[in-house]
Design a protein around this nucleic acid. Structure first.
Length: 211
DNA sequence: ATCTAGATCGGCT
DNA sequence: GCCGATCTAGATT
């Protein structure tokens, strides 16, 4: 019987997020829940790094939320945004140096039926995991999965090696208004790649006095 | 105790 | 292209 796809190791993910980002393109994230199995081929990612990266959740130091980003590589960092969505990252680097790669989009390669049930709003299969919250939703991930070890053979969520990718494209991160000059975003050609949106730097709303 | 901006999505114009 | 939904972490008072 043939050996399954190789699982990525903590060691190979313990690198700079900009390196890990390229490494993750083409890999398959496979989640098993009571509902069933869904797997996604990663086609779009973004790197985030503590310290010098003002867009990172770790820019201002260690907090309860970003704690797993400071831990060993190969763990899942899941966070809650905009009051309704979860986004998933693969932790890179280690030894108290925070870094992670946001999984922005993927192609569903296993469990399409379950994926469709989880994302009824998708108008076609390419949209199922087109966007970080959609990708996370399709895999059934939420805050309970924060810190899960993707390199553990017994883990419910695994990161598997895929076909090597060619022709990697780069550009500014989506929805981020700072550090736009550094190409932190990486993707390969796919209909599932999300559409670019400039970060919204909100202008302060001044409420005029009632008169 | 209170405030505010946010690594988004989906529906509507 | 614009806007509202919905809530939380982290900063500030």
């Amino acid at each position: 019987m043939p050996a399954g796809p190789r699982q990525l190791t903590e060691q190979e993910l313990a690198v700079d997020p900009l390196v890990a980002a390229r490494l993750l393109l083409g890999c398959v994230l496979r989640s098993t829940t009571p509902e069933g199995v869904v797997a996604v081929r990663v086609v779009e990612v973004e790197a985030y790094r503590g310290g010098d990266d003002p867009a990172s959740h770790c820019y201002r130091g260690r907090t309860p939320r970003n704690d797993v980003m400071f831990g060993p590589a190969g763990r899942l960092y899941v966070y809650f945004v905009y009051g309704m969505h979860f986004c998933a990252n693969v932790v890179s680097l280690t030894d108290g140096v925070p870094g992670a790669v946001l999984l922005r989009a993927g192609e569903v390669v296993e469990g399409v039926d379950l994926a469709r049930r989880r994302r009824p709003a998708a108008r076609n299969d390419a949209e199922l995991a087109k966007g970080p919250a959609r990708l996370t939703g399709v895999l059934g991930l939420d805050r309970a999965h924060n810190g899960v070890d993707l390199t553990d053979p017994d883990s419910p969520v695994k990161l598997l090696a895929g076909e090597p990718v060619t022709d990697v494209r780069t550009g500014p991160r989506v929805g981020v208004a700072v550090a736009v000059d550094v190409p932190w975003r990486f993707w390969v050609d796919s209909p599932a790649v999300s559409t670019y949106r400039r970060g919204t730097r909100r202008t302060r709303v001044v409420v005029p006095p009632e008169r």
